[in-house]
Design a binder for these strands. Sequence first.
DNA 1: CACTCCCGCCAATTA
DNA 2: TAATTGGCGGGAGTG
Length: 897
Amino acid sequence: ENIFDRSRMAPKTPIKSEPIDLSKQKGCTPERNPITPVKIIDRPQPDPWTPTANLKMLVSAASPDMRDREKKKELFRPIENNEQSDTPDSLQYDTVDDSPVDEFEKQRPSRKQKSLGLLCQKFLARYPNYPLSTEKTTISLDEVASILGVERRRIYDIVNVLESLHLVSRVAKNQYCWHGRHNLSQTLKMLQEEGELQYGELMTSQQKEHDLEYKFGEQKKETIPDSQDRPLLEFSEPDCNSASANSRKDKSLRIMSQKFVMLFLVSKTKIVTLDIAAKILIEETQDTVDHSKFKTKVRRLYDIANVLTSLGLIKKVHVTEERGRKPAFKWIGPVEFPGKTDELRGHSPTSDPLPGTQRGACAQYQTSATGKQRFTRHASFNSAQPCEAARRKVSSEPNSPRQERQACVVNSDENCSKMINLAAVCRQKIEEDTGKACDTETILNSSKNSNITLPFSLLPVPGDSDFCVNPLPRAVFPVVQADVPSFSLPIGINSQASHPSTPAASKTENGKSTLVPNQPFLCFPSSSLFMLCGGLQENNLSETLPASGDVGNRSAEAQAALPPVGCQKRSSHKCSSPSAPVDDEEPAAKKQTLEQSDLPLSLVVPKKPSESPKAEPSPGSVCSSAVHLETNRLDLASPAAAEAANKESTKPLNCQEQEKQSQNKYADEPPPGNEHISKENPNQPFQPQYLYVQPTAGLSSFNFLFSANQAPGAISLAANQLPSLSVPCVMVPSAALASFPLVCSPSFTSPLSPVPEGSFSAAASTNFSMSSLASNAPVLISTTAVVTPKVSPGPSVDPQQPAHPTLHLSPVLTRSCSSVKLDSPVCMGHPVTLLKLQQPSSAPLTPKSIRPAHHEAFFKTPGSLGDPVAWKKSEGNQTRNASSVQRRLEISSTSPD
DNA sequence: CACTCCCGCCAATTA
DNA sequence: TAATTGGCGGGAGTG
């Protein structure tokens, strides 16, 4: 009751925070207090006239008081504006009820509420992630401190870390300039490069004993004495002119922060345990490994980690080692820094939230980001970058088996984290993009992310759309392969069956087949080509934003739809289990994304035939990664289908589908034979089967690439054959279609559920043709899912049917459906129907697919996925068991076990 | 008890 | 010299 009263009373006070101080201290000259001339003088507020000006003034006035208090220590409780706003009147407590301390206490913000991370979030919330270049935002420490109700000391902690990443720079005493994340990518890239120099591969073996690493770290450190600090690029770059002196200041927190980030960027696993980081960061003094020093370092690392977490760059995880569970942090920020420029980065930082598993997602995310960027900096993408990305991926991948495994383990956790991250990222993105719509934006973003493609842009604007589609630069291709293997590995690990499949998958990958399988279609935006991928990207989105995803995603989906197909295929090819793919995909995806964005047209076109296959896979991977959940689902479905197809290659699609369905149920058990088949199939059919149609002009004319043969999935090949034959890819001349291109993937119709069998490729093809014919609107049929615009032209295809048929299917469908949006801008005026055909993915994939499912399940309520989930879990366990790697890194959270 | 990490003393720097 | 920065570690929350 008291509280209420207080609140009531208080509310009326105009100034919440200040009141106390003023009263106490100096009378309250409403304005600045004469008493603290200095401060006032120091910052004569820039614009008294702005709306906020008054507030600022008040704040400034108050700030001195606040400080005084602090000094006095009288202050009992910090005034926390935002948080405690709830208790608006906390301010007045002092006066009003000193006595009711208890309540006070109660209300007193818990430790958590005062955490640096939260404070940092508040801080960040005050500034746009991507401020307009024109406007420079200056940050007044006193002001911020007072507004946030904390001592400046805390603000220093935040600012120092932000400064290390160049999000802000110190302009003058008490004044910092907010830069936002525009340069974040660059900064990270620099850090990565620097980190590689300094820490090189040490990190590679993070998992290894700390000792080793530690030693390495030391050595390196030694080589690079303290002086290193300066060398750290960051400072030099930005400009730290005035600050210049690298006094001790530049020492710790800032440098430490950079080094800490470097460790992540250099680490393959992207996971750094606190103790290792502390050891490495303890400079030369290492010898004196004082326990105290270590402890201090750890404290600082927590401080830094809290800020980085708020930035959405890392997340906390736990690594289980022999000794037990250790606190660690996982990098969830952007991993690839293609262009030096911001390119992807801008968004990526946030976007990447989904690391491991969702690398694909990340990739997508990036893509989406790129898409955004496109607007601004389209050009920036270079074909070159993709290559680099590819290289990196490749290089990194080699080790992948182990890492991947770990990653896999982590993945489950990651999903959650990813989700969270996505949310955060979305937020950021949103802010950035739009500026501020929160929820909605978030959703959109997420959707975008998930859909690699970037839906909107794709359809509407060809140029932008590059994304979706996956350009297939060769460079990417290699990457893809690498990725694939990795994926396969995890998968293999997971399930016994998978192993065999894995090899097969890899083979396929190596072979062109892989490529083909994965990518059913490629679509390039007008100028660029669209690639349709079997895989669904939607997953991510859908996962993240189920509801929102529908809305936003759909639009996106329309665009994405294409990609998804590829993804599916890809997944199928690889047999990748969903989960596995994810890990692998991340890199690949990223690469792909990069590549895609860059490569788009030119590359694709020329290469179509030969390359397309390759390219496809990569895109597919990307897609799949992007949409983990969906992918998984899809994969599951597809795999089964694939298996069936494989088994019954001869059999008509329908039959296959049926089988698939059945198989899907069994997803777990991929028939070995299938795998082989899949392998073989890929080889045969897959190769370049795309037909590219150049658009006469812009978007209106889309270029379609159809794989002539290719059915969506390599695995499905046999099955696909029919489809491929029947409907492989249809190119519609841009003019003819005028509006949209139709793409059909051999794969099953997404609606599988409705008519599982019927959906078969043949059916799909049929539908396909029909729909296309019937409606002017373009129809896209992807293996993964079918998207029907509002109206599903597709006869039987039902967009989303609940498809229960198989667990796999259903999920897939759903997502697919969701993923594709008719409404989406993509659709543009025309209704577009996308039919996804489930592909029979290679049997081997099932395990992997399962994994993803796990993740999904994890997130989703049991009810929806119930069986699947359980199923997934079981698989997951298997996987873990299988993988030796896991042993070490397990995220406790993952727990699925 | 271990993990986190808030709090704020107080030294180094700066103005 | 006063103010600003920020290193550092005690020790309080949390689980």
